[in-house]
């Protein structure tokens, strides 16, 4: 089994920033964008998100798998949320509104009448959802492609996480290739004994039980290895002093600028919403004119 990280150096603008500053920006962006349902504000965040995304220089060919997943989730949410259920859209869209098919419809042949509760306001809400989820996705989808897996431990330590948690993270990243190799070896060994993972016959329970000869040996073997690693670490007095890290992270002027921008984005968002009462769900006039209202 081949396990490869999505990261490679692309020399994009995004990579000029310290990973800690990038996390602060990403989280501030997430909290800021979720304050708003006004499409004008969401469009502003959408532009920032995609400017950030494109500064990574990641190609569509590399990221398309992630976008397909997001596209599927978006489709499900919008179709179910706005078109099928006709619910309250999380209490954002006020009840009532302008019906898209005010007259209802008739099913041919059987002649049954149906009434469809889809409104123009809910359709506008779907556009807002598209902007909001699209912006959040652009910010978070790009992280694996642009952040070196070797710096996750030190980054989270730098963000204030306990030493042991950060080290656990570092260790987990290093274990992945080893465990992937163990999994491959186990799969080959089981196949040599006549095990057929590709067989799709049988019900759900049979299929799950068929996975056990793969999961059990890999898990138990890694637990036994873990005992040896624990002993080795204890012998080296792990945890008696604060750790030092191989990679050293240093803030530069551009990182301070990004952190300041993140604070302004979040702080500005909070002030705009709570002090000026701007940014709640809003439907433009031209959209309602389409509805004939």
């Amino acid at each position: 089994m081949l396990v490869t990280w999505r990261y490679r150096l692309r020399n994009g603008l995004m990579e000029k920033f310290d990973p800690r500053a990038r996390w602060i920006f990403s989280l501030a962006f997430l909290f800021a964008v979720t304050l708003f349902w006004d499409a004008r504000f969401l469009a502003f965040f959408f532009i920032i998100a995609f400017a950030w995304y494109f500064s990574s220089r990641a190609k569509w060919k590399e990221t398309r798998r992630g976008w397909y997943l997001i596209g599927f989730i978006l489709f499900m949410m919008i179709v179910i949320n706005t078109i099928i259920t006709g619910g309250g859209a999380g209490g954002v869209v006020p009840p009532g509104g302008h019906l898209v098919w005010a007259q209802g419809g008739t099913i041919p042949l059987v002649g049954w009448q149906f009434h469809f509760g889809l409104t123009w306001e809910r359709l506008w809400f779907a556009i807002c959802q598209l902007l909001r989820i699209g912006a959040i996705s652009a910010i978070f989808l790009i992280i694996p492609y642009t952040m070196d897996p070797r710096v996750y431990g030190v980054t989270f330590r730098g963000l204030g996480l306990p030493d042991r948690f950060a080290y656990s993270m570092e260790l987990a990243f290093r274990y992945v290739p080893t465990l992937a190799r163990d999994f491959g070896t186990t799969l080959d060994a089981q196949r040599a004994r006549g095990y057929e993972i590709e067989r799709v016959k049988g019900g759900i329970i049979k299929q799950i039980v068929r996975i056990a000869p793969l999961i059990v040996p890999v898990t138990m073997n890694s637990i036994l290895t873990g005992e040896d690693v624990t002993n080795a670490m204890d012998l080296r007095c792990f945890g008696t002093r604060p750790r030092t890290w191989l990679q050293k992270l240093t803030f530069h002027w551009q990182d301070y600028a990004l952190i300041a921008f993140s604070i302004i984005l979040l702080g500005g968002g909070i002030i705009t919403l709570y002090a000026f009462h701007l940014g709640n769900f809003w439907v433009p006039e031209f959209w309602l004119r389409l509805a004939g209202g």
């Binding site: 042991r164 656990s168 637990i223 624990t230 670490m233 945890g239």
Partner: peptide
Amino acid sequence: KFGTREVVYAAIGAALYAVLSLATNWIQLP
């Protein structure tokens, strides 16, 4: 408790979960 043993097994658990999730990604529910 989160001592050396827990640090190691948390890392192994996370790596195992990741690898096995990816390895069994292709299996579909009938």
